[in-house]
Computed example of a mutant assay.
Amino acid sequence: MLIRKFNKNESGLNRFFGPLEAKIMDILWNNCEMTIKNVQQVLDREKGTNFNTVMTVMNRLVEKEILQKRTEGRSSLYKPVLSRDQFLHTQSKEMTNELMDEFGTVVVSHMLDALEDVDDDLVAKLEKKIKELKKDK
């Protein structure tokens, strides 16, 4: 599942989802499997959100294959297809691959420039990965 929408002016999950979608995903990632009513009740604690709106958004997330839906008795239970970490890993990898395919060395140059602002552990991991890539060629 690749999210085609990416909002560079947003932060966190709002880069991939609309505001309500992001809240719903956050709730489900923190609670695993829930009904629409359960999700709506959590949202109501923060800000009143209509049940039908929550239902529509959650069913659209099912259509986008971001949520799974299963029926238990008369209730429908929803849960994320991927964990939060798996989702972020998949999306960032896809975005990186697309940027590399389209912009190549410019992207690498910008990523290297950004390393000036990161901790030494990340730089060490990058150096290790580069050595592995060179060894495999």
Rank of each mutant, 00 (worst) to 15 (best):
M1A: 12
F6K: 05
F6M: 09
N9P: 02
S11Y: 05
G12W: 00
G12H: 02
G12F: 02
N14M: 12
F16S: 06
G18Q: 09
P19K: 15
P19C: 15
E21M: 12
E21C: 09
A22W: 04
K23T: 01
I24W: 06
C32P: 00
C32A: 15
E33T: 10
E33F: 14
T35M: 14
T35Y: 12
T35C: 13
K37G: 12
N38T: 09
Q40T: 11
Q41P: 11
V42Q: 15
L43C: 14
D44S: 15
F51Q: 10
T53D: 07
T53R: 10
M55V: 15
V57T: 07
V57G: 00
V57E: 06
M58P: 02
M58W: 03
N59M: 08
L61F: 03
L61Y: 04
I66D: 06
I66E: 11
I66A: 13
R70A: 13
R74V: 15
S75C: 13
S76F: 11
L77A: 11
L77I: 12
L82H: 09
S83D: 01
R84Q: 12
Q86H: 09
F87I: 00
F87T: 03
L88Q: 04
Q91S: 04
E94N: 12
E94Y: 11
E94P: 00
M95V: 07
T96R: 05
N97D: 05
N97H: 02
L99H: 01
M100C: 03
E102A: 06
F103W: 02
T105F: 03
T105S: 00
T105C: 04
V106I: 03
V106F: 00
V107P: 03
V108E: 04
V108L: 01
H110A: 06
M111T: 01
M111L: 02
D113E: 14
E116Q: 10
E116R: 09
E116G: 09
V118E: 07
V123W: 04
E127L: 10
K129Y: 01
I130Q: 01
K131R: 08
K131V: 08
K131Q: 08
L133Y: 03
K135C: 04
K135P: 02
K137F: 06
